[in-house]
Design a protein around this nucleic acid. Sequence first.
DNA 1: GGAATGTACTTGTCTAGACAAGTTTCGGCA
DNA 2: TGCCGAAACTTGTCTAGACAAGTACATTCC
Lengths: 234, 234
Amino acid sequence: MSAPAPYARVKAWLKNGLARGRWPAGRPMPSEADLVARFGVSRMTVNRALRELQSEGLVTRSQGRGTFAAPLHRVAARLTIRDLHEEIEAGGHVHRARVHRARAEPAPAAVAARLGLAAGGRAFHTVIVHSRDGVPLQCEDRWVNPAAAPDYLGVDFTRTTPTHYLLEVAPFWKAQYGIEAGVPTALEARLLGIGAREPCLVVTRRTEDHQRPITLARLVHPGSRYTIEGGFAP
Amino acid sequence: MSAPAPYARVKAWLKNGLARGRWPAGRPMPSEADLVARFGVSRMTVNRALRELQSEGLVTRSQGRGTFAAPLHRVAARLTIRDLHEEIEAGGHVHRARVHRARAEPAPAAVAARLGLAAGGRAFHTVIVHSRDGVPLQCEDRWVNPAAAPDYLGVDFTRTTPTHYLLEVAPFWKAQYGIEAGVPTALEARLLGIGAREPCLVVTRRTEDHQRPITLARLVHPGSRYTIEGGFAP
DNA sequence: GGAATGTACTTGTCTAGACAAGTTTCGGCA
DNA sequence: TGCCGAAACTTGTCTAGACAAGTACATTCC
């Protein structure tokens, strides 16, 4: 059991003070010089502690003015979405994918627009149902820009998830998400084995490259079987 | 237009290489010494660049072994949940809150347990409907630990949101979230003016202090009116 | 062959000092 | 009174060097 590093000591001290409301938001916190004197460490060390707190969103700093407790009003809580395959296997369960469609099709107008294709252009379309221990958990309806992943249709999606494959051949640069509640389409209800009016958690995701959109996915989860969970500690 | 700082140049160069798949995951990336030689900057400078990439989850580093491109399989995308009031006002809309209940009540067993109260203990209970431009967007059913916010019931919630107030009097230290799709309770359906079977996005949130749970909230949003959106750029 | 050892390389961290650049404050001047 | 500029303070960044500690690999010894 070794002593924590000095920068970590400073950081912990500050974090603790922040947690118990010392330094009300808007009033300046100790300056780097103060902390140097208080802890007897060099300025680079306290700078690192403060910079990390800043990147964690706990303080705001501005040149010439000082360091301030971040207005926590912004509850900016983060939650993460993981690859379903990993999530299932990490929990010690069995993941299985059933491919219901995998072919090139003319993209509907709305899809073509969001994929940056000409109206009526062809794109790869897969519909895959992912299950955990035999229970369908997600229906993944995905369109892929052929320019970004030309060999997409050659992949065996019972062994590799589209997400995983696409990350390898076309790492994304930007992504957008939407999470909403909705009802499944008739096809989705049938594939998932649920009622037509059962509430579903619908995640839509679009990723792009530097130049072009890569893929557009609609992930439908039965509300009774899937929850996105997250924790958050400042 | 000034030149970017050296550490930022190094970081951008690395980020770019990562984005285009140089350094396949598992094979070592340039060491700090390499980068020092390549960019003609000091080691602290490249160290900062690498450390920031690490904290962004783009690389993994390990003492004695080297720096590696992070296996991007982990799609770990972050999305943020903001305070509804801020979100509405930021969009230039009018936020209004209607308080339907605000009183101390014996907490149901499930609530008492999660709030760390004795079975049958009393807690503050508020039910508030938030609307945007007159349309109900969220039904907020909240239980508050009286020990954490004794004056909770004295607040005028048509002017301050519970989230905002609680963050001021009892900043949280840890939070847990769940997002799921479900149907509203009869009361929620009535307050939101929606059908009893309309799919809703249900967010549950629990925050705690160092010592004790602070609050437990169930936020119900009509699926047709509310979406959680987020973006993500590595 | 197998084990111990030494060496080279890696990241982790700290230091003392420096200059740049933004903000605030206060004194002096018109 | 009102304006202006200097001083003091803040953060932002970089440097050159140092020691610690973990890892990998070749060499040496049994």
